[in-house]
Simulated assay, not measured.
Amino acid sequence: MGKNFKASSAGDVRAKKHLGQHFLKDENIAAKIADTLNLQQYSKVLEIGPGMGVLTKYLLEKPVEVHVIEIDSESVEYLENNYLHLRGRIHEKDFLRYDLTEVFGEEAFAITGNFPYNISSQIVFKMLEMREQIPEFSGMFQKEVAKRICEKEGSKTYGILSVLVQAFYEAEYLFTVPPSVFNPPPKVDSGVLRLTRKENFHLECDEKLFFRIVKTSFNQRRKTLRNSLKSLNLPDNLREDAIFGSRPEQLGFQQFIELTKMIEPYAVSDK
């Protein structure tokens, strides 16, 4: 562990509320998160929001090229001064706005991190947009969000993220992390998950329409699909099919794929 970084003589970075920072201080949990990566189909890893590098130092022990992306300039300065092996691979950028092809080109890479609660769902949506390059994704979320991503149909917490992620990835909820291991401690438990891209992750339907149908369905999740999908102006005879009598949380991702295939001939393209 010691070979990849030097001890700091500077003080700790101050956690900033507006960035949703809660710095992990438990070394064992950091090591466990680093071990969630299976290190297959890629040779590069991107850590989002490394802070003071408690997870980073364990990633640096892995046989992969580690990059980190951090929006907080104070954290970037700390990393540059203390993690010398990361020189040239510390990207002071906003992950949600940064074009990652500037770093990775078209190469495959994994993503991991202790994700800020306030942007964790947006991180997942961006990951889905780049799924061609991301065979594996792991990290720490608010427990409720991590559970939701891994939830199966029939649950009240099953939703848009559940369907979209599980259409392309195998989702595993791995373990729960208490607030006490963070500085400052959050008000809720955290949860660590792993997403492993499916061997065949291309859908047998129009993927853009699939996303649109899933999002439109769950925007009115208490209604049946017959009502929630009214905006698609589907013909009455199609809307009489039994599947339109279901609520969105009753359908697994495969059923949403079948639903999309049914709707495709009638949908107005938004490409």
Score class of each variant (00 low, 15 high):
V192Q: 03
H85E: 09
R194G: 07
R14D: 07
A31F: 02
G2D: 13
I90S: 10
N28T: 14
Q166A: 06
S217L: 13
Q142R: 06
K147M: 10
I111K: 07
T216V: 11
F182T: 00
M127Q: 01
E70M: 10
E144K: 08
D99V: 11
G49H: 02
V192H: 04
S231C: 10
P248V: 11
S217W: 14
Q255M: 12
P116A: 00
A146V: 12
L59W: 12
E199H: 08
I71R: 11
N200P: 01
S246I: 00
Q41Y: 10
Q250E: 15
E106Q: 13
R14G: 03
P178S: 05
R87Y: 01
P248R: 09
S231A: 08
T112D: 00
D12P: 15
V68R: 04
Y266H: 10
S180V: 06
A171L: 03
P179E: 03
L229S: 13
F125C: 02
L225H: 06
E92C: 11
F168A: 14
Y58E: 08
R247V: 08
G113W: 03
M127A: 12
V54K: 15
S162G: 04
L195N: 02
F256G: 09
F175Y: 04
D206K: 03
L193K: 09
D189G: 03
T112P: 02
H22L: 10
G53D: 04
K198N: 06
S155D: 08
N114F: 00
L59Y: 06
A10G: 15
L86G: 01
K44M: 01
F244D: 13
M130P: 08
L24Y: 00
A31W: 00
E207K: 13
V54W: 05
G139I: 02
Y266I: 07
E27Q: 08
N233V: 13
N81Y: 03
E92R: 14
R221H: 13
H67I: 08
L39A: 02
N183P: 00
V13N: 03
D241F: 04
